[in-house]
């Protein structure tokens, strides 16, 4: 597994929580938003978003609700919960600390 894949695997929950902290979204919308904000860096099989969302729902980090959008077509909207917001704060701080320490270590590395 590449470093990018490892980082993505460890941070996907955080990314989804960050996107949902602004407004409830449906799966495709979350996927597009993640791609847009990261410029495709965190690109993954879009379908794998759903098992992750369902696990986050089971863990109480998000809630979901079906909404009829047109005719008989429905979309399942996901919204961040209070526990999700707390997890977002905690994970975001942890990642900031991680990146800060990592940059400190890498400061002396010649990347050219």
């Amino acid at each position: 597994m590449s470093i990018r894949d490892q980082i993505r695997k460890g941070s996907t929950t955080l990314l989804i929580l960050a996107v949902l902290s602004e407004e409830p979204m449906y799966g495709y919308q979350i996927s597009r938003e993640l791609a847009r904000r990261s410029g495709g860096y965190f690109d993954m099989k879009e379908g794998l978003l759903y098992p992750l969302l369902h696990r986050m729902k089971r863990e109480g980090l998000v809630s979901s609700q079906w909404q009829t959008v047109s005719g008989a077509r429905r979309r399942k909207y996901y919204a961040i919960t209070k526990a999700g917001l707390e997890a977002l704060q905690e994970q975001a701080q942890e990642w900031q600390m991680f990146m800060s320490q990592l940059q400190g270590v890498l400061a002396g590395v010649n990347l050219s």
């Binding site: 099989k45 379908g47 794998l48 759903y50 098992p51 089971r58």
Partner: peptide
């Protein structure tokens, strides 16, 4: 291809079956 039709069923099954 982008959705990963071939891999998503297994991931969904793994996520939901135990529950």
């Amino acid at each position: 291809e982008r959705f990963g039709v071939a891999v998503v069923a297994e991931a969904l099954q793994d996520e939901h079956a135990p529950w």
